[in-house]
Measured scan of single mutants.
Amino acid sequence: MDVFMKGLSKAKEGVVAAAEKTKQGVAEAAGKTKEGVLYVGSKTKEGVVHGVATVAEKTKEQVTNVGGAVVTGVTAVAQKTVEGAGSIAAATGFVKKDQLGKNEEGAPQEGILEDMPVDPDNEAYEMPSEEGYQDYEPEA
């Protein structure tokens, strides 16, 4: 019985440690998101679009440190934060509304985080759909 109880105690310690790591990862992701939003706020009209992409990228980098179902929630929060940063930029006159959601080359930025393969159960990952990809044929 002692062996059984000791095993359960060790398992509990492992769960607590994993929860603490997840909590730490979420806190880091939130900190990076805040950094990115402050970065966007300090940019001029020309830099705002690039700044919004930076927020998304920093958040995406930190999301990889967070495991399990938390990833889905962090990704949703990050996307809403990026959308909010863009709205703030438009409201303050840093950028025109028609410039939001495009990178410096004018290509749409939507789907940055949505296409990231995420499995809350950590069982399997699927690649994003290939609808947006084109076949590449090298020139002879």
Rank of each mutant, 00 (worst) to 15 (best):
M1W: 00
D2R: 01
D2L: 14
D2P: 01
D2Y: 08
V3N: 03
V3Y: 02
F4G: 00
M5D: 00
M5K: 09
M5I: 00
K6Q: 03
K6C: 03
K6M: 06
K6H: 02
K6D: 03
G7K: 08
G7P: 01
L8W: 11
L8N: 00
L8I: 03
S9I: 13
S9L: 08
K10H: 04
A11I: 15
A11E: 00
A11T: 03
K12E: 00
K12I: 03
K12D: 00
E13D: 08
G14I: 15
G14D: 02
G14P: 01
G14L: 13
G14E: 13
V15P: 00
V15W: 07
V15M: 14
V16Q: 04
V16G: 03
V16K: 11
A17F: 11
A17M: 14
A19R: 02
A19V: 10
A19Q: 01
E20W: 06
E20T: 07
E20H: 14
K21G: 00
K21V: 10
T22H: 02
T22D: 00
K23G: 01
Q24L: 12
G25I: 11
V26H: 00
V26C: 11
V26P: 00
A27G: 04
A27H: 06
A27T: 03
A27Y: 12
E28L: 07
E28Y: 04
E28S: 09
E28C: 07
E28R: 09
A29V: 08
A29D: 00
A29R: 02
A30S: 03
A30L: 13
G31E: 07
G31F: 15
G31C: 01
G31K: 12
K32L: 15
T33P: 00
T33Y: 02
T33G: 03
T33R: 01
K34D: 00
K34E: 00
K34M: 04
G36S: 14
G36M: 15
V37R: 00
V37Q: 00
V37L: 14
L38E: 03
L38G: 02
Y39E: 02
Y39D: 01
Y39H: 06
V40I: 11
V40A: 05
V40M: 11
V40C: 05
V40G: 01
V40Q: 00
G41I: 05
G41T: 12
S42H: 08
K43D: 00
K43G: 01
K43L: 14
T44K: 01
T44N: 01
T44Y: 12
T44E: 00
T44W: 15
K45P: 02
K45M: 15
K45Y: 04
E46C: 07
E46K: 07
G47M: 07
G47S: 15
V48S: 01
V48Y: 12
V48I: 12
V48K: 01
V48W: 15
V49Q: 10
V49K: 12
H50R: 14
H50S: 12
H50M: 14
G51M: 15
A53T: 04
A53N: 11
T54Y: 13
T54P: 01
V55Y: 14
V55G: 01
V55C: 07
A56R: 09
A56T: 12
A56E: 01
E57I: 12
E57H: 04
E57M: 05
E57V: 08
E57G: 04
E57R: 05
E57N: 10
T59S: 05
T59R: 01
T59L: 04
K60F: 08
E61Y: 02
E61H: 04
E61A: 06
E61C: 06
E61S: 06
Q62R: 12
Q62T: 11
V63E: 01
V63L: 08
T64E: 09
T64S: 09
N65M: 08
N65Y: 07
N65R: 13
V66H: 03
V66R: 04
G67W: 09
G67H: 07
G67R: 14
G68F: 01
G68C: 03
G68T: 12
A69K: 09
A69C: 06
A69Y: 07
A69T: 04
V70M: 05
V71T: 05
V71I: 14
T72W: 06
G73V: 14
G73Y: 06
G73L: 13
G73S: 14
V74I: 04
V74F: 10
V74Q: 01
A76L: 12
A76S: 07
A76W: 14
V77N: 01
A78G: 05
A78Y: 15
A78L: 14
A78E: 02
A78D: 01
Q79K: 11
Q79G: 04
Q79A: 08
K80S: 06
K80N: 04
T81N: 02
T81I: 09
T81W: 04
T81F: 13
V82Q: 05
V82E: 02
V82G: 03
V82L: 12
E83W: 11
E83D: 06
G84V: 14
G84Y: 13
G84P: 02
G84S: 11
A85C: 10
A85T: 05
G86D: 04
S87C: 10
S87Y: 13
S87K: 04
S87A: 13
S87D: 09
I88T: 03
I88F: 03
A89C: 13
A89W: 15
A89D: 02
A89L: 14
A90P: 02
A90K: 08
A91V: 11
A91L: 12
A91H: 12
A91I: 06
A91P: 04
T92I: 03
T92E: 04
G93L: 09
G93S: 06
G93R: 03
F94K: 03
F94D: 04
V95T: 10
V95R: 08
K96E: 11
K96M: 14
K97Y: 02
K97V: 15
K97H: 09
D98H: 08
D98E: 11
Q99W: 15
Q99G: 13
L100K: 05
G101N: 02
K102V: 13
N103M: 10
N103T: 08
E104P: 08
E104F: 14
E105C: 03
E105N: 10
E105F: 06
E105V: 09
G106A: 07
G106T: 07
G106D: 03
G106W: 13
A107I: 03
A107Q: 05
A107E: 06
P108D: 08
P108C: 10
Q109G: 03
E110N: 08
E110C: 06
E110K: 06
E110F: 12
E110V: 08
I112S: 13
L113C: 03
L113D: 13
E114N: 11
E114G: 10
E114H: 07
D115K: 08
D115C: 06
D115Q: 08
D115G: 14
D115R: 05
M116C: 08
P117C: 10
V118E: 13
V118I: 04
V118P: 12
V118N: 13
V118Q: 02
D119R: 02
D119K: 02
D119P: 07
D119H: 07
D119A: 12
P120H: 09
P120L: 08
P120A: 09
D121V: 05
D121I: 08
D121C: 08
N122G: 02
N122F: 03
E123M: 08
E123V: 10
E123C: 13
A124K: 15
A124Q: 04
A124M: 11
A124Y: 14
A124S: 09
Y125N: 11
Y125W: 08
E126D: 12
E126S: 05
M127E: 15
P128K: 05
P128E: 07
P128Y: 03
P128S: 04
S129L: 06
S129N: 04
S129I: 06
E130P: 11
E131K: 09
E131W: 05
E131G: 04
G132S: 04
Y133I: 03
Y133V: 05
Y133D: 10
Q134C: 12
Q134G: 14
Q134E: 05
Q134D: 06
D135Y: 09
Y136Q: 09
Y136D: 02
Y136I: 09
Y136M: 10
E137I: 03
P138E: 04
E139H: 08
E139I: 11
A140P: 11
A140L: 12
A140G: 13
A140I: 06
